[in-house]
Design a protein around this nucleic acid. Structure first.
Length: 291
DNA sequence: TCCCAGGTAGATC
DNA sequence: GATCTACATGGG
């Protein structure tokens, strides 16, 4: 927690909206993004889209500080997926999978963010074999070493250009990325060279986009699916990590089951809603101490 | 000291 | 193909 001078906030411009099916704390802490900090209860600093946002939830209101209506419409409405009707999504999942009704009701404010493609790619390459607090630390280290400084101790996540011009294996290792350093460099190089092209991926089929992502060293099936889901809006993607494997085995298979089998099952069962279902299941797994 | 973490590449069979 | 292991780093 970092204490805030509330008078500092009162003097500045803010934009306030009503929301439903939205819980800021859960949206940020459910494991889909790593570049945020809790300032106070229901009050966060989020670094995304080349901006530093301070945002607070008060019951069914979201307050975006230092934000104009225009900026909200251009950036944050999409980032927080606020144009989408999650009531409909939740009903659809419960209808085909009533066993998820409880976890969905208990976490009814979850949303899938629409994050920056490149940051999502680098972040989930870092995520392999790391715990969430450590992933956040490496993201912060990379930002401080290579990103643009916004204010005291606040740095944006570095752009493709900043990283391709300045990043080295040694530098990335200094950020505590460890054995992932060459993976991160390969991702930077392929994106900078246009071998992996965000615009092309956005227009490609999900399978084609995945194939392109898999050409990057250090990107396998799980990381590719996370990038598709969180960074390219492919809501049918279903990343299977250790937690998902545990909860899916516990709920549906009752025995050790290969990830490929789990993915096929999820695709069949959840269809276009697989990505949302995955996020509810992931939370369910994380809070289930018996797994 | 050992084991695990939002995995993956490379070796080996 | 299907398994086995090394890979940095930090925490329980």
């Amino acid at each position: 927690m970092v204490s805030m001078d509330m008078n500092d906030l009162d003097n500045k411009e803010y934009y306030k909206i009503k929301v439903r099916d939205f819980n800021l704390e859960e949206v940020l802490t459910c494991g889909q993004c790593f570049n945020f900090m809790e300032l106070d209860k229901d009050f966060f600093q989020v670094i995304a889209k080349g901006k530093v946002l301070r945002i607070r939830q008060e019951e069914d209101s979201l307050i975006f500080y230092d934000t104009t209506k225009d900026e909200y419409e251009r950036i944050w409405k999409d980032y927080f997926d606020l144009a989408r009707d999650y009531g409909e999504i939740k009903s659809a999942i419960i209808k085909t999978s009533p066993e998820l009704e409880n976890v969905i009701r208990e976490h009814s404010g979850i949303r899938i963010l629409n994050q920056d493609f490149f940051e999502t790619l680098i972040s989930f390459i870092i995520s392999q074999n790391k715990q969430i607090p450590q992933i956040k630390q490496v993201v912060r280290n990379l930002s401080e070493m290579y990103g643009t400084k916004v204010s005291d101790s606040v740095y944006l996540f570095p752009t493709v250009k900043e990283l391709s011009e300045n990043a080295t294996d040694e530098g990335i290792r200094e950020c505590k990325a460890g054995f992932r350093a060459p993976y991160i460099l390969d991702a930077i190089n392929k994106v900078a060279a246009g071998d992996v092209d965000e615009e092309a991926l956005k227009h490609a089929s999900t399978e084609e986009a995945k194939e392109s992502l898999l050409s990057i060293k250090g990107v396998g099936e799980k990381v590719a699916n996370c990038v598709l889901l969180f960074g390219l809006g492919r809501r049918e993607s279903f990343p299977v990590d250790v937690w998902m494997k545990r909860i899916m085995e516990n709920m549906y298979f009752h025995k050790d089951t290969p990830k490929e089998v789990i993915m096929d099952f999820a695709k069949e069962k959840f269809g276009d809603y697989a990505g949302y279902a995955q996020q509810y299941l992931f939370i369910y797994a994380k809070e289930n101490k018996t797994l």
